[in-house]
Design a protein around this nucleic acid. Structure first.
Length: 450
RNA sequence: GGAAGGUUGGCAGAGUGGUAAUGCACCGGACUCGAAAUCCGGCGAACCGAUUAUUUUCGGCGCGCAGGUUCAAAUCCUGUACCUUCCUCCA
């Protein structure tokens, strides 16, 4: 058992190495890079990619194409001579001379192919680690500073008492149980109990209903996905190297860090017709994150957990529509906060703050009274064709030409953090918490948790 | 978890070592006032490279995927994924 398990996992390792090589995966179009070397260097420099990396990529690409020319020449010869051999054999003539020669050619092909594989591997390793090129209007910054506040909606409430932290409120009301979460699972886990569980459920049902009304098709996706899916949306390979997620041992499965992964990969390796665009999906799912590297940050409360619920929105659009779609998806996420009457602001992330796949990102941050600051509750991004290239999602345009679709994702919204925001913003001096009006129908008319 | 069968172009479907039949669909043409039917011709996804760079042409790859044997693999060998059916088990 132990032996087979071990062999099994080493095979999986090879599988995960090879699926990268097997298909030509361009997150950025190699032809585009080749033709715009300086532009790419300049753009990626704003995302901490060294110019020498691009130089190395270019030289590997040249080497690769040279090898292809050489090896294909030999393969063409082999095909031709093989044809002759088969004719000779059919005529019962002697083909020994040709066969001997081809034996040699075959060896040469093998040698070139081995070299080619090596170069491809190196090239792929660089390519798959290059982040998306930021859109031209994204603020440039190499530090965390520099994001732009686009608008601020709603006035933070004036408290006549010292507002409590959401985790205190939740523990005092017996609706959040972090102690037992830690006992049963560990830190960064909790139980929602009673009206707390009901509040969580009310929020995500409310979100799903609103998203449905906005034209998103509701989906219940798998919560574990294979490596190719993780690759398609841009989590792998970096995610794997930094151990940012939970991978299931001895399998090829990873617990999803966001529903974006199964939603975008829904159409992986498919060609859509242009009537299918735009397609809009929404899903409630738990999100699983190891939070490696965030030790000591947000150790209490609902802000940073290993498992949290999130309602996600994903759109597949034609290239010319994706920038409008980003505004639309953001506006829709905002409408949810407006209806919940929680103060928030919208910021535009900087080049280095954006996720690996994003060309442009808006974050929505809600006001947290006890922390006296805004905290992220939604992130809406346009990845352009970055994910579509990795996951091979194309469509036939009106001229019957194949084109990559554009993909967008946005939280609509993070559920656990919504609970936190409601507890803090709607708290009363006596420790009770009012239920936002729009959620009351989802809580059997309950107006206050006490 | 065990067993058997399967996976070939948009679809259907042949092909057990000599380089992917055939049908439907599709594109072009003929016939027609036009269409259908019929006939003739063409193409068979995607991907990669060279060439041309508005159009092209040539080649590689390509029969679920990955290895191996061979001058040559859809075909033989090994591994593996998925689908179907039957046991087993289970919400």
């Amino acid at each position: 058992m132990g032996g087979t398990a071990k062999r099994h996992s080493s095979q999986l390792l090879w599988m995960s190495v090879f699926f990268i090589i097997r298909r030509k995966i361009n997150m950025l179009d190699m032809k585009m890079i080749r033709q715009n070397v300086e532009y790419v260097k300049e753009k990626l420099a704003t995302r901490n990619v060294d110019a020498s990396t691009i130089d190395e990529l270019i030289s590997l690409d040249e080497k690769r194409r040279d090898l292809i020319v050489n090896t294909e020449k030999l393969k063409a010869e082999r095909n031709e001579v093989s044809d002759k051999i088969s004719q000779l054999k059919r005529n019962k003539e002697n083909a020994d001379e040709q066969i001997t020669r081809m034996r040699e050619v075959g060896q040469q092909i093998k040698d070139f192919d081995a070299q080619l594989l090596e170069v491809k591997e190196k090239q792929n390793n660089i390519e798959t680690h290059l982040p998306n090129i930021p859109a031209d209007d994204v603020p440039v910054s190499l530090t965390e500073e520099g994001s732009i506040e686009l608008r601020k909606i709603g006035e933070p409430r004036n408290f006549e008492f010292k507002p409590k932290a959401h985790y205190e409120i939740g523990e005092d009301l017996n609706i959040l149980d972090f102690q037992r979460g830690a006992k049963v699972s560990g830190s960064r886990f909790l139980y929602y109990v009673g009206k707390g569980a009901m509040l969580e459920r009310a929020i995500y049902n409310y979100y799903l209903d609103r998203n449905d009304a906005a034209g998103y098709t509701e989906v219940i996706p798998p919560y574990m996905v294979n490596s190719e899916s993780m690759f398609g949306t841009g989590q792998f390979p970096k995610f794997k190297e930094t151990q940012a997620g939970f991978e299931i041992k001895d399998t090829d499965l990873t617990m999803i860090p966001t529903a974006e992964v199964p939603l975008v990969n829904y159409y992986r390796d498919e060609i859509l017709s242009d009537e299918q665009l735009p397609t809009k999906f929404t899903a409630l799912s738990p999100a699983f994150r190891s939070e490696a590297g965030s030790a000591g940050k947000d150790t209490r409360g609902l802000i940073r957990l290993h498992q949290f619920n999130k309602v996600e929105m994903v759109q597949f659009t034609k290239p010319e529509d994706s920038w409008n779609a980003l505004e639309e998806i953001t506006a829709h996420a905002e409408s949810l906060l407006k209806e919940l009457e929680i103060p928030y602001h919208v910021i535009e992330l900087t080049t280095s703050d954006m996720s690996f796949t994003a060309a442009k990102t808006y974050d929505l941050e809600v006001w947290m009274p006890e922390q006296n600051r805004y905290r992220e509750i939604s992130s809406c991004s346009n990845t352009l064709d970055f994910q579509a290239r990795r996951s091979h999602i194309q469509y036939r345009d009106e001229n019957d030409q194949l084109q990559y679709v554009h993909t967008l994702n946005g939280s609509g919204l993070a559920v656990g953090r919504t609970v936190a925001a409601i507890l803090e913003n709607y708290q009363n001096e006596d420790g009770s918490v009012n239920v936002p009006k729009v959620l009351q129908p989802y809580m059997n008319g309950l107006e206050k948790i006490q």
